[in-house]
Amino acid sequence: MSKPFRFKQFTVHQDRCAMKIGTDAVLLGSWVPLSDEISSILDIGTGTGVLALMMAQRSYAEVIDALEIDADAYEQAVENFEASDWGDRLFCYHASFQEFFQEIEDKYDLLISNPPFYTDTYKTEDSTRDMARFEDALPFEHLFVGVSNLLSRKGKFAVVLPFKEEDNAIEIARRTGLFPEKITRVQGNPSSEIKRSLLLFGFDEVDVQKDELVIETDRHQYTSSYIDLTQDFYLKM
């Protein structure tokens, strides 16, 4: 039985979700730039609902929608939304992203996703976890085509990916008319390899802001940048 994950302003139950809450989602939800102009947000592949909940805590957006294909995860996300202080602004659709972007006419000011992307890892015996982890559930091409259809003209798309997929994702995005605006590369500690890329895309070609983020200097010794970024969420920050 997986324990609920308690944040400062909300709790996430995750016992029915294949993918548990990890650093990636919290990093992305804390990092994405949010302006007062953002009135609608969509979290693609919400899982536990954590990113949508983070967006509700951080923004005044009236519409915060989420999308989840797995039935158990969908039900759990709905329950997590209803138990939060922002239940009136949060809504979850039970559908695949491909179905959703082909049927929905609405445009969103911000799309956010912590997508399945383990492209080169062996599949396990647990098909639900594989669906949550493997890129074949939602290939990059589908992701960016859908995003370009659903994004408002000035809208942004924020995503976290393995660093090794960064160039590939930027190239696929370019073919759908989306260009990187901000890139933060994440290292576990100062001597480890870059593991993740946090990317923000929009429809305009601009000079890309690039920086790095190191999570720890030593085991459980967090850097001031990481604490500053995540302290509104983590209980012990």
Rank of each mutant, 00 (worst) to 15 (best):
D130W: 03
E135H: 07
T176S: 15
D126T: 08
I227M: 08
E135I: 13
L161A: 09
S224H: 12
F134M: 04
F201A: 10
E165I: 03
R153K: 09
D211M: 07
S148C: 11
P180D: 09
P139R: 02
S225V: 00
L213M: 00
Q187F: 03
S197L: 02
D211S: 14
V147D: 07
D204T: 12
D207F: 07
P190K: 01
P162G: 02
N149L: 04
I215T: 01
I227Y: 01
D211G: 09
I227E: 14
K210C: 10
V160G: 02
A169L: 02
L200T: 08
I227R: 12
V186Q: 06
T217W: 09
F157I: 00
S197D: 05
D207G: 04
D211W: 02
P190A: 02
L138P: 11
P139V: 05
S224T: 11
A132P: 07
L138Q: 05
T217P: 07
I227K: 09
V160Q: 06
D204L: 06
L161K: 11
R185L: 03
V206K: 15
L151P: 03
S197W: 04
A173Y: 12
M131A: 12
T223S: 11
Q209I: 07
L151D: 11
T184Y: 01
K195G: 14
I170Q: 15
T128I: 07
F140I: 06
E205A: 08
E166K: 15
L213E: 04
T184E: 11
D126C: 05
L178D: 15
G146N: 05
L161F: 09
F163S: 04
V147R: 03
T217I: 11
E181F: 04
S192G: 12
F134P: 01
S148V: 02
Q187A: 05
T184P: 01
I194L: 07
R175K: 13
E166G: 07
K154V: 01
S225I: 00
K164C: 02
T176F: 10
R174G: 06
R175Y: 03
L143W: 08
D207R: 14
T223D: 09
G155C: 13
E165F: 06
I170A: 10
D207T: 09
Q187R: 15
I170R: 15
E205M: 09
D126Y: 05
K210L: 00
P139C: 05
G188S: 05
S152P: 04
V214G: 01
L150N: 03
R129Q: 04
T128R: 15
D211H: 05
E171H: 12
Y222N: 03
D211K: 10
I170T: 08
A173N: 13
E216A: 02
R185E: 10
L161Q: 12
